[in-house]
Write a protein that binds this DNA or RNA. Structure first.
Lengths: 269, 269
DNA sequence: AATATAGTTCTATTAAATGGAATTTTCAAA
DNA sequence: TTTGAAAATTCCATTTAATAGAACTATATT
């Protein structure tokens, strides 16, 4: 084997060089930073761009870390690490609506609850980590799966589903319609689909460049939570989701200005 | 060129497979998930482990995402995303010491101030983002550079330095001794090295698996800030640094239980 | 238009990836 | 402890990609 650690070491070096540059780097800047030959850097950048780990910024030949890498990094973060971050947000929600607030995360092909605050006596909260939410009967899960790849959705929908209540959707067509509605409306609703008399809302958390990996929502008795105007609940959750996405390491240094790089193959452009 | 997107596509597939499994996967599980031949997967995992992108969990041959990926995430995060997180911590420090508190971040080969709270009338705070701290005359920068790779330190020390005050260290040997002291003591001190009459403390923020990318500290007039016992200031800053590192998404799925994988080469273990 | 600089393509050489088979290790059941 | 099966690792002839430097093209700059 080579003395320098193989080809991956070069790719890693390139990624770290780009990560350290807030505004992205041109090919020649990478050449200078890494000490690699021009031709080599050109090929490395091309390969990294090919798999979406880096992306050109704007129309120019300036490269920054790409969406696929960001998504990977977020997936790699432990759910527990997030909970302290969102605790204050959840407590605000609880104060306002006097209902249980939660954050859920995509873990593999499951959605797990990550943090939860209940309207206890004086802001007392407990976390219920790792509980897997049923995809077909939880607003938290719907809010996330509505924005995942078709492949993942298909895998998830291929699993057997329990009919918890009369309202539980078990047919694939119904669920797909649900997900489509979530995409249109920007929030998920679960009206007595999991537990009778229990209503839940959830909003997807869009992480810039990394898609949707979290949702934030409220659960409560239909009679109480249902009394709040839907628009009010949703608006509040949306605001919380936005704050969440800004509080998390979500984006690249700067939003991509100009052309959005097309997915799929775009050779010899 | 190959039809499948090259070798990186396989590495990416492997990483994503592992990312979807919080508890890690064995070689054969990766084989099944990816459809690649055994021998190939074995080599891929070996290469990824070699650069720290994945790591064996416990003593067993189960692989999870590695620390080096996390560092990439933090490096890629915009400084602004951090400031909201640390604001409350800084305000606590200000309340306690009646001095300016700040957080600084490693950005490329510079240390920039990311957030700052001054002891204004009633908790009023303003952020002064992006100010680059001189490496040789700022506690914030010393606290960070003391824990960086030799290559980075060397690059930084190769730059010209201004002698701001009588106390400013400009000799490389002096600075290296400073950094060594920071490593030993766990905090950095800057005693009238940048501005006459101004004293600053900073503690490194150790992110689990990602090294030191931030520092948190205090700045104030020597006469006032110097009145506080050094041990008190340092203990408080250390606590803040620890809280900071817990508040940031710092951990991978699970801490490695059992043996800690050695750095460098550890073949045929 | 001239010139320098960045980016891209080309090419013979070197090095690594490939995957199937052989071998060793690991682990659990007898 | 023995035994057997699965997992992990090593091996190796073949294929394929990486390498680095030079030639070339595109893109500013004056």
């Amino acid at each position: 084997m080579s003395k320098d650690g193989g080809i991956l070491a070069r790719y890693a070096m390139t990624l770290e060089t780009l990560a350290a540059a807030p505004d992205g780097l041109s090919l020649m800047e990478v050449v200078q930073a890494t000490g690699l030959p021009r031709g080599t850097v050109h090929r490395l950048l091309g390969a990294l761009r090919g798999i979406g780990y880096i992306a050109p910024r704007g129309g120019r030949k300036i490269y920054v870390l790409g969406p696929r890498l960001l998504r990977l990094l977020h997936l790699g973060v432990a759910p527990a690490a997030v909970s302290s971050l969102v605790q204050p947000m959840l407590e605000k929600l609880v104060t306002r609506f006097k209902e249980t607030a939660f954050v859920a995360k995509l873990v593999g092909a499951d959605v797990q609850s990550v943090a939860m605050v209940v309207p206890g006596s004086d802001g007392q909260s407990y976390v219920q980590p790792g509980r897997v939410m049923p995809v077909h009967a939880a607003a938290s899960a719907k809010a996330i799966f509505a924005f995942q790849d078709e492949a993942l959705v298909e895998e998830v929908l291929s699993r057997p589903r329990t009919r918890y209540t009369e309202n539980t959707r078990v047919e694939e067509a119904e669920l797909r319609a649900d997900l489509e509605q979530v995409r249109r409306q920007g929030f998920a609703l679960c009206d007595e689909e999991l537990d009778p008399g229990v209503l839940s809302y959830a909003c997807p958390v869009h992480l810039e460049g990394a898609g949707v990996l979290y949702s934030i929502g409220l659960v409560g008795l239909s009679r109480r939570l249902g009394d709040h105007p839907r628009s009010e609940v949703v608006a509040t959750l949306r605001a919380a989701a936005e704050a969440f996405s800004k509080g998390l390491p979500s984006g690249l240094h700067r939003p991509v200005i100009g052309e959005v790089p097309a997915l799929g193959e775009e050779r010899s452009g």
